[in-house]
């Protein structure tokens, strides 16, 4: 087959909603875009453990602590599913880590905000995981097989994350005046960054059309953001918390909530590396990787030694 007919064959598979698998021919741009998108997601899971890790030792009860530990462990798992999906595209795990550590690859900018109080664990689960689920559910039907299968696994596990967060918010908002204030404060701080998680507005997202065509994106940034606002407003009512947006209003004609302007300047700044915790997050990751080197080397040396010993026994 010529390159041209390879391309035609690929396009026809995409049009017929047939899944693309690692050994299938694919255009270079499809491969590159997938590596970028999947690894960015994997990095977000891994860096996403840090803001919550901050509260494991200070969780208010054993139950909360066990739950938070399980959630953070899930995030490590999600990072691993996604890294191995990215590896099927021909990039090594070391190179993926290297791209994160050198700042070449990005992760979700939401994790560059600090977790100041216990209520932040609630707000993150409820809002950040809620926004992530909104993003991820359509990706269970994405065109690339290993990615879609990883997302199915991720989505199955993610819904407990959101519920545990909502439960924390509910407990606080039904608690003392101080607890309720704490919940509202966390909501205020995490609301806008959560809306930014869906990425820049469609008009400024030039690759959206291509990604939708390839089925590696199934809904646009603005569509997902609107969906998220609509469901969250109703949930906030149950919590009895105020939406941190004075422009929020039901729009009868559109059948959706209108919401205030997002500060995209702040978003760009955090992405560029100037958020409150960018430096700290990256340094923590790099340190963990470097401090773990002797363990990785020792395990490898141990495995080699055992292999040689087993061969010697066989030979004798």
């Amino acid at each position: 087959m010529t390159v041209h007919s390879f391309q035609e064959h690929f396009d026809s598979l995409i049009d017929k909603e047939v899944t693309i698998e690692p050994k299938d021919w694919m255009p270079d741009d499809y491969r590159k875009t997938l590596i970028r998108q999947i690894s960015q997601h994997a990095h977000s899971e891994i860096v996403g453990m840090l803001p919550e890790g901050n509260w494991i030792s200070r969780a208010p009860s054993l139950r909360r602590k066990a739950v938070l530990l399980a959630k953070v462990q899930d995030e490590a798992g999600h990072g691993l599913y996604l890294y191995s999906a990215a590896e099927t595209l021909g990039i090594s795990r070391d190179e993926l880590y290297n791209q994160l550590h050198t700042g070449k690859a990005k992760y979700s900018s939401i994790f560059n905000y600090p977790t100041l109080t216990w209520a932040d664990m609630g707000a993150i689960g409820w809002l950040v995981d809620g926004a992530a689920i909104m993003n991820q559910v359509p990706l269970c039907r994405t065109s690339y097989g290993p990615y879609a299968r990883a997302m199915v696994r991720v989505c199955k596990e993610e819904s407990f994350h959101q519920r545990q967060g909502f439960e924390i918010m509910l407990t606080l908002s039904k608690g003392t005046e101080i607890q309720k204030k704490m919940a509202q404060d966390a909501f205020n701080r995490w609301w806008w960054p959560s809306l930014m998680m869906f990425g820049p507005p469609d008009a400024e997202s030039p690759h959206t059309a291509q990604s939708v065509r390839w089925r590696i994106k199934r809904l646009t940034n603005d569509e997902l953001r609107q969906k998220f606002v609509d469901v969250t407003v109703e949930q906030a009512k149950v919590l009895g918390l105020d939406m941190p947006d004075k422009d929020l209003k039901w729009n009868e004609e559109r059948g959706h909530y209108d919401f205030g302007a997002i500060d995209w300047e702040e978003f760009r700044n955090v992405v560029k590396g100037n958020g409150p915790c960018n430096k700290q997050r990256l340094e923590t990751r790099k340190k963990a990787w470097e401090d773990g080197k002797w363990v990785r080397d020792a395990a490898m040396a141990h495995a080699e030694k055992r292999k040689v010993r087993a061969e010697d026994v066989k030979a004798a």
């Binding site: 690692p22 191995s84 590896e87 099927t88 021909g90 990039i91 090594s92 795990r93 070391d94 990785r296 080397d297 395990a299 490898m300």
Partner: peptide, 15 residues
Amino acid sequence: MAQQDITNKTEWPLW
């Protein structure tokens, strides 16, 4: 299943 030919010596093998 991942492609294995890109693995280097310091990286643990893929399973």
